[in-house]
Write a protein that binds this DNA or RNA. Structure first.
Lengths: 167, 167
DNA sequence: ATAAACTTTCAATAATTATTGAAAGTTTAA
DNA sequence: TTAAACTTTCAATAATTATTGAAAGTTTAT
């Protein structure tokens, strides 16, 4: 496999994974492109490389910046804006996990908590609703908490050895 | 909040979460409905409760069975097929994690491995592609391995205490 | 102040994905 | 074997989501 082919394969696979996760394809592809680029890229560069429109590029870059994954890089003497992405995968994971937790998991935990807190009127179906949503609530909360802990703290010897144990 | 309202809220929230994950809304809602039901439900029951068509119900039930989350329950003397879902959240998580790993994560690991294995021609951009996809490969593989470990093994004292530590 | 260089916005359109419903298929009972 | 009871399939359609491109907006240099 040659460089160009490998690059395209990486970008399109990463893009596909993104859309599978509710992150849109263009957004994932822009991130992928920046991730393997050796230098900051302009909007023009990105449009050309991925063959997407100016508007699309602009909107998705802004989203990536909202997420905190991509930042502007001003190059002295240049009028254009250039962009770079976080290159450390550990840090990237941390940001993504945190953002997904905030946007997706937290609201679900809230609803599960509300639903599982309805008054028990003694009927079998109410009991079941309470019991099952409570179980889901606890699980979701634990999983989310674990994810944040694992991912937030820079790896110290303890987490390192735990991961070793589990891996 | 009354039972009916709580039920609807749960089903629609769960459905929304599903679509956020690339699982379609109807599929997630059917699972949610079965999850809080006190008895097996027929296709008719599901169609009526969720106001979706027969075809839609049939297809999505089949998908849920493919995933191993829902099973047919034959009721003696009844002609119709009835359905139930796994009620233990721990087990549900195990099944879903395994399935997502198989369908989504594994193919990505493979591509990352292929891409990061291209021949190093000495150029800076090739080096960067190899380095970054390798980092992503390792991370993805570790995360996937951890997920499987955490989720596959029934909780014994060790994992329980690790979770306590992390939570 | 003006214009060139660039970015953002957003209504229109295209692409994708989900849903319907009716015809075809299957199973069971008599 | 026939017909009723039920399920599956799939082409058509609807709903949703992504993308374009040109007009409006902004910033910088002169």
């Amino acid at each position: 496999m040659k460089y160009e082919e490998a690059k395209d394969k990486f970008i399109s696979t990463w893009g596909g994974l993104g859309s599978l996760w509710g992150i849109n394809k263009a957004m994932a592809q822009i991130q992928a492109l920046l991730f393997i680029s050796t230098k900051p890229l302009s909007m023009e560069d990105i449009m050309e490389e991925l063959k997407i429109s100016r508007g699309n590029t602009s909107m998705n870059l802004r989203q990536l910046m909202d997420w905190g994954i991509v930042t502007k890089q001003l190059i002295p003497g240049e009028r254009k804006e250039y962009f770079i992405t976080e290159k450390d995968v550990q840090e990237l994971t941390r940001i993504i996990a945190k953002e997904r937790s905030r946007r997706e998991i937290q609201p679900v935990i809230k609803v599960l908590n509300d639903v599982s807190s309805i008054k028990d009127d003694g009927s079998e179906k109410t009991k079941e609703l309470i019991k099952q949503t409570k179980a889901l609530h606890d699980l979701t909360q634990n999983a989310d908490g674990m994810l944040n802990k694992l991912v937030t703290q820079k790896h110290n010897w303890l987490t390192k050895s735990i991961i070793k144990l589990l891996t």
